[in-house]
Design a binder for these strands. Sequence first.
DNA 1: ATTCTCACA
DNA 2: TGTGAGCA
Length: 120
Amino acid sequence: MRIGEMVRRTGVSERLLRYYEEQGLLAPTRLPSGYRVYTDADVDTVRRVRALLAAGLPTTTIAQVLPCIRDDGTTLAPVCSDLVAQLRRERDRITDAIKELETSRGMLDAVIAAGPSDID
DNA sequence: ATTCTCACA
DNA sequence: TGTGAGCA
């Protein structure tokens, strides 16, 4: 499929799709016309990229992780053993982020509770 | 009609 | 990351 269908199937803009490619997250083939050609697997890849990006992982790390994810989407491939250490650090960073968000929520809860008439 | 690259009030 | 220009 070409980029137009990818946009429809992933909800990701052409701009971003091309950006992901630039970052080494996607590797569509090209038609003699220069048009990009994506596969069904690329649709799944974009979903994973979105999830990893939402988790705060930098595109450079995602580019390293993607080739390690088995086709089933859960298992890890053997070629990426050292990557586990890096991912553990990312995991810790996410844990800290959650902690910060929890305190922020706590502050908002206090402000809301102190409000005049908390209708909405 | 679609996609491509490049550039930025 | 959006938007628009100028092509193929």
